[in-house]
Nucleic acid binder design. Structure first.
Lengths: 162, 162
DNA sequence: ACCTGTTGTAACCGTTATTGTTATAACTCA
DNA sequence: TGAGTTATAACAATAACGGTTACAACAGGT
């Protein structure tokens, strides 16, 4: 069969593809640590130094400052060099888990699923798979994100025991 | 404040924690490649050798065999050593994207979100954050997976152009 | 004006997952 | 038996992650 040959006898030259990298990141603990930090700040802004938050999260202060920096860049918190403590820039009712998720770059480029590229376009499947699958996966991802958007930091705090 | 001291003056000994590792994996291209392979097998089982599929996906045949091996272990496909070709072990209408997602271990231990551990239990936030957040994130994950479960390989193929 | 405590970063390390690759054993069937 | 195939081990290159040290810059109190 022609297609069989076309697919099996791959040209050896394909190794030229410089690998664009663009690696999708996993959903790291940055996300949960960020939520933790925001919960602390919402509760007790005055004491929220990097060291203090690190003491509650039980990690290194630099890890915390890195994450706080991302939250600051996203407009969620206020921090000033030299002066201790941090404060929310929005009401805790208005900061959702999705805001935090996005702020800490939980998923690269807003794509949770990574899809292989360079499929063989001489093959009916290779020709179509990327677009069709992308549509499906984007819908799945959207549902997840909608759920994240439904919970605010304030709602989270309200669920704490006592 | 007592809590402040408790959190700020961390005992230096905490470094003993041997770091259990347990790294959560990202959603790799294994998933999309597996869907691609299953689509090929559903369409054209006879010709589906590792090299053939690799030609359509445009990657190394060993990568394909590794993935096919996982699909086989999950009971989705039939492959036999020595003999070329592969076949579905279930109707393409009954194989969902979620089945594939699970088969290739897209998320470690079925937990898409990784949550930091060892929060300071002397802190009200540290005490509660893990359980409360876990509940939320599991619901978000569940919605995503339910969406994956709604699409079968057959439905995917039906969406291909011409 | 200094000192202390803090934020903000850069730089580096060890670990891990991923993807591609080579090599080799074992198997099937004509 | 030989060709084609599956199965798998081993290795390398890359990247993300989390932790750590070091240091510059800054603010506020004394």
């Amino acid at each position: 069969m022609r297609l069989a040959k076309c697919l099996t006898e791959r040209p050896v030259v394909t190794t030229m593809v410089t690998t664009v990298v663009r690696q999708l990141k996993q959903i790291s603990t940055r996300f949960s640590i960020a939520v933790h930090a925001l919960s602390l700040i919402a509760t007790n802004p005055a004491e929220c130094t990097g060291d203090y938050i690190a003491g509650s999260v039980n990690t290194n202060p630099v890890v915390i400052r890195r994450i706080i920096g991302m939250l600051k860049k996203a407009g969620l918190v206020d921090v000033r060099p030299g002066v201790g403590g941090a404060s929310l820039r929005q009401d805790p009712e208005r900061i959702t888990l999705l805001d935090v998720y996005r702020a800490v770059n939980a998923a690269e480029d807003d794509h949770l699923f990574r899809i292989h590229e360079n499929s063989n376009i001489d093959c009916p499947v290779g020709q179509n798979i990327e677009n069709v699958l992308r549509t499906e996966l984007e819908q799945a991802q959207a549902l997840m994100e909608q759920r994240l958007a439904q919970t605010s930091i304030a709602q989270l705090l309200a669920k704490f025991a006592r």
